[in-house]
């Protein structure tokens, strides 16, 4: 017997749902960080995930400034869980990741990404988002179908407006489970952001016995 679960209960950071979501973020991002680490043959650390219930005007603040240029890779989620998964990294960090992946022969310091760079970036996004989502799926026993990865290189605010709008139809707040990761040597900073719908939020908690 489960009652309708609402985002509002997350306003209490000491609540059980809050802890559970943080653990969901931990497991998802942990798996994704391992995948990233293997992909670029480098040690990658991650921070303890943050669970936040944000109003739209605050959304772009999570990555610093709304004007900062970032690479955003977005996957639409369907199946048992609806929502979006976003993988976001700084422009310069993206350059470093691509060079690591393609090796010395193809690495470049160019200011713009070539077609091959873009394709490699998308693949990085795809692999690590997939790692995040498969961990989430095994943990909850819920089926998650992910779309192909969509990529944009632009201002953080403009990119984050996409999930904001998608959830703006449903409410005035968005639930974000963010994990930040760092590659030790180059401090490649990035974020995984899982944005489930309110309905999926309830499903995730129920599947974990809440």
């Amino acid at each position: 017997m489960s009652t309708q679960k609402k985002f509002e209960e997350l306003n209490d950071v000491n609540s059980m749902p809050y802890d559970i979501l943080r653990e969901v973020g931990n497991i998802g991002a942990g798996n994704a960080t391992t995948a990233l680490s293997q992909l670029i043959h480098a040690k990658v650390d991650m921070t303890v995930p943050k669970v936040e219930l944000l109003n739209f005007p605050e959304l772009s603040d999570i990555v610093g400034s709304a004007e900062k240029t970032v690479v955003g890779i977005l996957l639409n989620l369907s199946g048992d869980i609806g929502g979006m998964m976003m993988f976001m990294i700084d422009y310069s960090a993206a350059r470093h990741l691509v060079n690591q992946l393609l090796g010395d022969e193809y690495s470049s310091n160019a200011e713009y990404f070539s077609e091959m760079d873009l394709s490699a970036l998308k693949e990085i996004g795809n692999i690590i988002s997939g790692a995040y989502l498969s961990a989430l799926s095994s943990l909850t026993g819920l089926k998650i179908i992910e779309s192909i990865p969509y990529m944009a290189i632009d201002m953080a605010g403009a990119i984050l407006s996409v999930p904001a709008i998608a959830f703006g139809e449903l409410g005035d707040k968005a639930l974000l489970i963010e994990s930040e990761f760092n590659e030790i040597d180059y401090s490649v900073n990035g974020f995984f952001i899982l944005i489930p719908t309110e309905e999926s939020y309830g499903k995730i908690l129920s599947s974990l016995g809440m």
Partner: peptide
């Protein structure tokens, strides 16, 4: 919001908005 000269008004990172 509103704004009167000589002040200026801005919004950052308009995407689909």
């Amino acid at each position: 919001n509103i704004c009167m000269s000589p002040d200026a008004i801005t919004t950052l990172g308009l995407g689909s908005c």
